[in-house]
Design a protein around this nucleic acid. Sequence first.
DNA 1: ATAGACCTTAGAGTGTGCTCTAAGGCAACC
DNA 2: GGTTGCCTTAGAGCACACTCTAAGGTCTAT
Lengths: 147, 147
Amino acid sequence: MPYSIKAAAARCGLSEYTLRYYDKAGLLPFVARDASGYRAFTDGDMALLHTIICLKNTGMRIDDIRTYIQYVMAGTSTVAKRRALLQKHREAVAAKQRAIAENLKEIDYKLAMYEDPQAAQLVARELAAASQDKQAANLPDAFAGIH
Amino acid sequence: MPYSIKAAAARCGLSEYTLRYYDKAGLLPFVARDASGYRAFTDGDMALLHTIICLKNTGMRIDDIRTYIQYVMAGTSTVAKRRALLQKHREAVAAKQRAIAENLKEIDYKLAMYEDPQAAQLVARELAAASQDKQAANLPDAFAGIH
DNA sequence: ATAGACCTTAGAGTGTGCTCTAAGGCAACC
DNA sequence: GGTTGCCTTAGAGCACACTCTAAGGTCTAT
């Protein structure tokens, strides 16, 4: 029933190296060893690992994930702490989401310019403006001669 | 009119170190030097820097940003290449956005559990299930004795 | 002309998260 | 009992993006 490290890695999409690294970093204190000293991942372990990966994928640091796991291992008395940690992280992720949405708008604006049938002219105009900027400031013009 | 590295750093939110690092990495070939060899950032330079930061903030690597800047410096003939590069990046950012949205749903699910008035009981049930998992597999139970 | 605040460079150091190597133990099959 | 394939550990190495230090040049004001 339990999974070897190879099987667990295949199931969660991480490398065996990464799983061992996570274990060493204190993220997997719940993973048991069999009689030979091999790691044995149960389905419950895979569920917790899934949560770890979710936190990692949203940019939480290994150190903070370890803190969360330590709360989990300490039982129900840490529910308030887990809630606070997750609430803080949730807000950070939401902020990141908003920032990405804003940046995506800008990328789309640039893309629209490059997709315009008159793209070359629009770009040439940008170039000319940048070139004038340099000359107005009596600076060497890195854009001179580009067309 | 042009900005010193200190002023440019203050305006774009990067450190002076980072700006010098970007210059060394080939991201700022358009920034001119004044008579004393000091970098002089024009408004046009700040606009390009803004684009660089936008790409960086959405996870583009320095190497790929340099490629984009090289296209810009090569003039209008590279419009198709710029479009292709930005289109590919746009799709990567959109994918990341979708992934974050999915992960956020999971965090919210966990949070809802911790915010439930019966949170302690729900958590205790998870704990019991994980514990049983271990015992069913004849493994040492890291959850034993936790309440 | 000297102090102080600014700028320059090359190159070393840091932090994070892996990623891999070396040396060796365990288990199953021929 | 040897080969194969899995597992273990400690620790080295790597990639990336900074971040800082050291040594020194420039500008402005007193």
